[in-house]
Write a protein that binds this DNA or RNA. Structure first.
Lengths: 243, 243
DNA sequence: ATGCGGTTGAGGTCCGACCACATGCTCGGT
DNA sequence: ACCGAGCATGTGGTCGGACCTCAACCGCAT
């Protein structure tokens, strides 16, 4: 009485290679900073062609686990690294574009993640991060600021707070989720009726948020950022979205 | 007075291909279900070799945006799909193994995400999902259950609730985060002093959680799941972790 | 000692060939 | 007319070799 019939997946070679390297990483035999043997050596050792190996390496590269550099120095070759942010960002961006996730889903995720970020940041954010955030807010207060620059600084503001919360994982997730809706937000801002007023209003919230974080008022900051995000997304769905 | 000097990034060919396809996806020209031209046609059109194209396709495949099947039917060839879960799972698993994220980070992320999941599930989870969850809980109550099976069912329980919350994004994230610590949890459970008692205690919490969700008590369910997860991770850090 | 060019080894790219597989069609037998 | 065996075709998957670019290194000439 088998519970379920699962399709027996024949493995393509590069998947085998991938699994092999993956296992080494999970077993702790490969750690950040380690170097892999040159492709031309590793391929015959694994018993596959260089193409197959290269495809596996490429996958690891897009996951943010590997970087490769030509040349000869100590930095050359394939090295294990830890750079999840880009990979996660691209992943969510594409899937959001494909409609795997609705705008509502992203909104809720942002609220949940950023509430947590701001609450944690209020507890233990380094002052230098807050000073940097201050500069970003100041930058956004610039009169005559373009939509694009504002969007840029806004993203960096939210991501910075997430990073300063001390939690690398939620920081990465926050960043990726924020990135995934960036083009949408950009379009919405461009369609705003009174752009300077909108910018001023949004930035007033940023300033208040920063103040709350500085004085350690975690819950208040969390509530405000939820309101901030929800308000923002509210203008999104009412934006240039009537098919 | 240039604002910043940015390193001019020479792009590797497959990155260009990737960007090109990515743009089509984001622009909405490529949608889920669409098929790409055969590799042998597409490569010369893009002006690159098949190898370079294949590397780009491989990347898209690991992101969960593409699947490829040989053969000739209507299902053959490269098709755009939406399957973010595996990709995200592998990504977090590897990065957790590499130490990009501490156990504490994962704990906090789980708490935040699953609180949200359970709260939302209490509001609008389909009854069939809850019935399925009921079965999982019953399965975990089985006397003499092995650690491995329990871990399996536990994972499915949490992921199921996340999915039934109606938010695809937080569901994916929850699932991926839970998966990333699965081997760790497995080891911790195996090291438990009184395994049957531990299993009973954990499952009593599951049952209560399910009841709370059924009766729509969102906040209570959220609080309990936070306690549930924190307690669990508490045994983790005190577990077989003394080097 | 210094500066410059060749050498070397790394990844990046390309090409051409073959393999495995599933579909779809043709052809022959019934 | 029907039906099954078997070949043709088109797809991704794999392989091996060749060449390119790049960066460090070595050694010669200044």
């Amino acid at each position: 009485m088998p519970v379920e019939w699962q399709p027996v997946q024949q493995s393509r070679t590069h998947e085998l290679v991938l699994r092999s390297i993956e296992e080494r990483v999970i077993a702790g035999e490969l750690r950040a900073g380690d170097r892999l043997p040159p492709e031309r050596e590793l391929a015959p050792v694994l018993g596959v062609s260089r193409s197959a190996l290269r495809e596996a390496l490429r996958v690891l590269e897009t996951i943010g686990v590997l970087v490769a550099q030509p040349g000869r120095g100590p930095d050359a070759g394939a090295r294990i690294v830890r750079n999840p942010d880009d990979a996660l960002g691209r992943l969510l961006r594409l899937h959001f574009a494909l409609g795997s996730y609705s705008l509502h889903d992203v909104l809720e995720a942002r609220v949940v993640l950023e509430r947590s970020s701001f609450e944690a940041a209020a507890c233990h954010a380094p002052v230098e991060d807050l000073d940097e955030a201050e500069e970003l807010v100041a930058g956004m207060a610039e009169p005559g600021i373009t939509v694009s620059t504002f969007n840029d600084l806004d993203t960096r503001f939210h991501v910075l707070i997430a990073r300063s919360s001390g939690n690398a994982l939620t920081s990465t997730l926050t960043s990726a989720v924020r990135e995934s809706v960036r083009p949408l937000i950009l379009r919405a801002l461009e369609a705003a009726e009174d752009w300077p007023a909108t910018a001023r209003a949004l930035n007033a919230e940023h300033r208040t948020l920063l103040t709350l974080v500085r004085e350690g008022s975690g819950p208040e900051a969390a509530d405000l950022v939820e309101w901030h995000i929800r308000g923002f997304h509210g203008t999104l769905v009412k934006g240039p979205d009537a098919p």
